Computed example of a mutant assay.
Amino acid sequence: MPATTDDRVDLLAKRCDSDLGDPDLWFRPDGYPHSLALCIIDSIASTGAHYNSVKNVLRHYIEYRQAQGGNADTDNAGALLGTFTELGGPQQWAEMTNNRKPTSTSKGAPLKAAAIHEAAVQLREQGINSTYDLLNAAPSKIEEAKKAWISVPGQRSGITWNYFLMLAGIGGVKADRMVIRFVADAIGSAPENVSPTDAATLVKAVAEKSGRNVTHFDHAIWRFESGRPVNQQH
């Protein structure tokens, strides 16, 4: 007999209790509360990549902006697009960040740099130029922005959109392969039988049941599955 949703929530909650330690000691995700640019870059660069490569992209962008006298920590979408214009386009931007990875393994797939550029364009067209715009947007505006985002090459699943929101400070779950693997193991299923939506729904349910921040739950699970320490030592 298939496990009910309540059963799966209970199983996942038990696994979180046993594997993730004291929630008060969890490492907290940093995010970029004042930089829509860094939210866009990090979320799209992170797909199918080791996080060190993402950090390198961010570091190159931050250093480039510093050399210009700018501040990446407060960059909006317009500032990000300005760097593409100055450099000559996505190809040159990819070279500046030393990351020429494509959006997928499909032949001829565009660069992640091109997807970053397109996502910034789409957000601006939706009237979202800053994290302030995003955090204060009406639900209908957010939904339109999501539709625009998932139209960008390589972003159709919506995983990077959810991560983008989390980086900007809107609670959620980035149901990537790490989170799916943890959830699947906890509920006794194979990862291929757990969709990103299912994984996100179950993690959100556990967070609500425990009264904890769902983004913090997501981050703790990701750290555990990627072999990083989950709890800060005091």
Rank of each mutant, 00 (worst) to 15 (best):
N213Q: 11
P2H: 03
P153V: 01
T131Q: 09
E225W: 02
P139V: 13
R212M: 05
L36H: 05
G169T: 09
R15N: 04
G48K: 02
A109T: 05
H60Q: 12
C16S: 13
A184M: 09
E208W: 02
F224R: 10
T83M: 01
D24M: 01
A145M: 00
K174N: 09
A148Y: 09
R223E: 01
T83Q: 02
I221W: 08
I187W: 10
Y64P: 11
R15E: 03
D19M: 14
L123M: 14
K174M: 09
R59E: 08
A205T: 11
F27Q: 03
G171M: 08
D185M: 10
E143H: 13
Q92H: 10
T131G: 04
V230L: 00
T103G: 02
P191R: 00
H34F: 08
W222T: 14
Q126G: 05
Y132H: 12
L12I: 03
I128W: 03
R124E: 00
S210D: 15
W161F: 15
S226L: 07
W222V: 13
Y64Q: 04
A220T: 01
E225S: 14
K107E: 14
Q66E: 14
P90F: 06
E125K: 15
R15C: 05
Q68E: 15
T4M: 05
V173K: 08
I128V: 06
A138P: 00
S189I: 02
N231K: 01
L20A: 10
I221H: 09
I44E: 00
Q91F: 06
D22V: 03
K204R: 15
N231I: 02
L135G: 13
A37M: 09
A137M: 05
V183G: 12
T85H: 13
M1W: 06
V203R: 02
G108P: 09
G89C: 02
G31T: 05
D19N: 15
P23A: 04
R223N: 02
Y64T: 08
T97D: 00
G227E: 10
A199L: 07
D73C: 03
A45H: 06
L11P: 06
G48F: 06
P191N: 00
H234Q: 11
E86A: 15
D30V: 07
N71T: 04
R156C: 01
T83K: 00
S35Y: 08
V206R: 11
I187H: 12
Q155C: 02
I40T: 11
Y51F: 13
F27I: 01
L111M: 04
V206T: 06
S106I: 00
I116G: 00
Q126E: 13
G211E: 09
D19C: 15
E63R: 13
T5W: 11
A94N: 04
H60M: 07
A138Y: 04
D7C: 08
I128T: 03
A67L: 07
F84R: 01
A109C: 03
V9I: 14
G188Y: 12
